[in-house]
Amino acid sequence: MEWLVASAVGIMTAAGVYLVLRGRTFAVVLGLSLLTYATNVFLFASGRLAVNMPPVISKLASGYTDPLPQALVLTAIVISFGMTAVIVVLALRSYLESGSDHVDGIPETIEHENFESVPDAGETRR
């Protein structure tokens, strides 16, 4: 169980960091989402992993799991959801205003160096 959670956090973080470092806003947004998922699971694990334990007081409970990280994760999910919405709208607006979906806004040069397989900027602009 520990191994599963730890490797899930690790893989999601690695994929997230890789995607955030990409040049186009769509990949960056996906990367940020993956990073927040990884963070949420990590935050959840900070209260130790417990199976079949209630976080609130119950007469039937044999033990309890730490309720605080669960509350924190809820807050973090709400905030990261809002933030993702903001960055999506901003990225869209930036694409519509400048005609390129690159984070740095210099589409042509980056296009030829690194992205041979993607459709060219003129086509996506239509």
Binding site: L32, E97, S98
Partner: peptide, 26 residues
Amino acid sequence: IKAGVQYVVINLMGSTLFLIAVAMIY
């Protein structure tokens, strides 16, 4: 808006790190 996108991305990374740090300390 281009500068705004970069600013938001940087700060979202910062928020992610903040949560990881909080989880570690907690």
